[in-house]
Amino acid sequence: MNYFLDLFFSGLTRGSIYALIALGYTMVYGIIGLINFAHGEIYMIGAFTALIIASLLTVLGMNGMAILVISGLAAMVYAAAYGYTIEKIAYKPLRNSPRLAPLISAIGMSIFLQNYVMLAQTSDFLPFPDLIPNFAFMEPYSDFIGSSDLVILLTTAVAMLLLTIMIKYTRMGRAMRATAQDMQMAMLVGIDVNRVISFTFIIGSVLAAIGGLLIASHVGQINFYIGFIAGIKAFTAAVLGGIGSIPGAVLGGFILGLTESFATGYVSSDYEDVFAFGLLVLILIFRPSGILGRSENQKV
């Protein structure tokens, strides 16, 4: 039983991270119809920034909580800045190009960022400090759930809640929904579509950075390549739930996390990534619109 619970909670933890990253994919896709291939790299850069700032602060002699807060903020600010800049450089000029062009540009951006971090930092795995404190009250349950699992789950829940409120009730949220439905029309009614798009990239990037910080602290090491695999998995989650749908991304994240956790726990851990890729291939083939997505009918 404990083994099952252990797998269950580690699945939920993974799932939360996937969900946090998947939201970025889904929001960008919903608005400009692009698979932002470089999104995984934002998550990686978020984690790296956190690591760098945290190490710096440690050397400067700061203590636990302050390090977590400052490096977390730095990760979010930088991820947002990168997300914003990437959109301006690699996607905005291609808004009216054939569909393949922004996609190729996105892949190029992803490769570029990976190598940028590798060259500027290192290609080795770096140990990531354990920023999340251990709570004493979690001690009795430590067989199957740790403090960091709890923090990750709670953070994800709060982030989702804030995002939902933002999209439902704020002006910017309304503008985002309008742009997602019909960009031309949104422009005509006076919505600054460029701002909405930038904002979407920023929000998505901040969520990815939170995910990066949490998982890096949970796993304890990072390298320049973590964004690639995590990106594909989060994309899988987004598609699984129905790309373009925000609750779908969360649902997809959890389903994928649990599937992976149980499959590696009960079947084989060698093929961990194969399960995710296999799931992705299967959904796209049998239900490309995902669980909560609307099937789209191309107008002719």
Partner: peptide, 28 residues
């Protein structure tokens, strides 16, 4: 065969997935 019905960007991801699956199988 399986990717025939997919739109351009999904096709890209699925082929990427297939490529990785084949590599992972070779590895394991």
């Amino acid at each position: 065969f399986p990717v025939l019905r997919l739109r351009g960007d999904y096709l890209a991801i699925v082929t990427l997935g297939f490529g990785e699956i084949i590599r992972l199988i070779l590895e394991n």
